[in-house]
């Protein structure tokens, strides 16, 4: 099932990738300015410490520069950055955990910050309500939905970031949206009634 989405016409990433391959430091800066905020937001969802989250993103950009000569121009460096941030954040969480000498094995794929379910009933603002519902989704669904909706990543990119099949990405997103839609309908029909 090879359905090819036409690339967004003004997507500057392919050119930035080519310029990185040519060791153009200004291209790194352009990528940084475009992507760093979304990457920090993404890291922040895994790590409570904001300074650590920024540090993880810095490391990802430094690695991008170091790996520039082996970049594949056909592949998304945005996905590469998200994936590197994810791996680095997980490594640090694991190390922090080990250092705290809690030695039980690490089998949770991701430690997200805890959702706040009780906040939800009080919310009157749609945005806050949606935020609360999102927090209650299973974590893989939540991650896929957020990357798709807020960071604008394609399914292929998300698959690469999360290290799962594009097919599975789609399943996560569809399921997540179905849950959100049920919550949305329930709230709005109740208010409308």
């Amino acid at each position: 099932m090879m359905t090819i989405e036409p690339p967004a016409l003004d997507d500057p990433y392919p050119e930035w990738t080519r310029r990185l391959l040519a060791s153009d430091h200004a291209a790194l800066e352009a990528v940084f300015h475009d992507a760093h905020d979304a990457l920090v937001a993404y890291a922040r969802r895994m790590m409570a410490d904001a300074a650590q989250a920024r540090d993880v993103v810095q490391v990802a950009f430094i690695r991008l520069w170091e790996h520039r000569l082996s970049l594949d121009p056909e592949r998304s460096i945005r996905a590469w950055l998200f994936r590197t941030v994810r791996n680095e954040a997980l490594t640090r969480l694991r190390d922090a955990r080990n250092q705290a000498r809690s030695l039980e094995t690490w089998d949770e794929p991701m430690q997200w910050r805890a959702p706040q379910p009780e906040a939800l009933l009080e919310e009157s603002e749609l945005g806050e309500a949606v935020q609360g519902w999102l927090d209650e989704l299973p974590e893989r669904q939540r991650e896929a939905v957020r990357l798709s909706r807020f960071e604008g990543l394609s399914h292929e990119e998300i698959a690469e970031v999360m290290d799962i099949a594009p097919r599975t990405v789609n399943n996560h997103i569809v399921r997540g949206l179905q849950t959100l839609r049920a919550r949305y309908d329930a709230t709005w029909s109740r208010e409308g009634a």
Binding site: A41, A50, A53, L126, V130, Q131, R149, F150, L180
Partner: peptide, 14 residues
């Protein structure tokens, strides 16, 4: 619901 999610877009992190 996809469109409604725009209202939940996170504020700038940095």
């Amino acid at each position: 619901v996809w469109r409604a999610m725009e209202s939940a877009r996170p504020a700038p992190a940095v």
